[in-house]
């Protein structure tokens, strides 16, 4: 499929911690991307009421425990979230982490999540590789936004981060397209190649 017609969705979660078995999702932010166009108007953001509260984590996120108390549980929104993302390629920053959280949560509700994923970190490495650029040493979301001149002051939350990720991805896509990568398959091939090169020949960077 041509990249220009592909459906992506940038997803960012906030969780009570990093342990996929124990921790829970407390916020979901998602921004759909159609080809290279970010459909910011169709953004999705929900707080999610966790089953067991971990207050110290909540404090870090700056989320209001009272708001969380009023929020729906994952089980209540599972259907709408699933329909939002089921036919799209999930884009994220350290996307596997968020994907596994989602997959687990969906499984509990009886949904089977099977999406292709693109991690903007991997894509960044791959693009740097083909364009002969030296990748930035620590690929943080901040640094990526800075590199692509899309850094704006904003309040970190799941939606804002999903949006910034979408913008990073958008520029990356544009660069890939300009290089001649026009289809989704080619895009995944590129990422894979980047990974292999990294494993076996990282010295070339």
């Amino acid at each position: 499929m041509n990249i220009r017609n592909a459906k992506f969705i940038s997803v960012d979660l906030e969780t009570t911690g990093l342990n996929q078995k124990r921790d829970e999702i407390i916020a979901i932010g998602a921004v759909p991307i159609l080809g290279t166009r970010i459909m910011a108007g169709d953004s999705y953001y929900r707080l999610v009421k966790p089953n067991k509260f971990r207050l110290e984590s909540i404090r870090i996120h700056g989320l209001d425990p009272k708001e969380l108390e009023k929020a729906p549980t994952f089980s209540e929104i599972a259907d709408e979230v699933f329909r939002l993302i089921e036919d799209k390629i999930i884009v994220g920053y350290t996307v596997e982490m968020d994907y596994n959280f989602l997959k687990r949560a969906f499984k509990k509700e009886g949904y089977k999540l099977e999406n292709q994923r693109v991690d903007v970190i991997d894509l960044e490495r791959a693009i740097c590789y083909i364009l002969g650029e030296r990748p930035i040493s620590v690929i943080s979301l901040e640094k990526l936004a800075e590199k692509y001149r899309i850094k704006t002051p904003y309040r970190h939350n799941a939606l804002a981060d999903a949006f910034i990720t979408a913008q990073v991805f958008q520029v990356q896509l544009l660069r890939a397209i300009k290089y001649g990568i026009k289809t989704v398959d080619k895009l995944f091939e590129l990422i894979k190649r980047g990974e292999i090169d990294r494993q076996f020949g990282s010295h070339i960077f």
């Binding site: 166009r37 970010i38 108007g41 958008q170 544009l174």
Partner: peptide, 12 residues
């Protein structure tokens, strides 16, 4: 205004 904002990237 943002309710239906879209962001598009254009190649040189």
């Amino acid at each position: 205004l943002l309710r239906d904002l879209e962001v598009e990237a254009f190649e040189e």
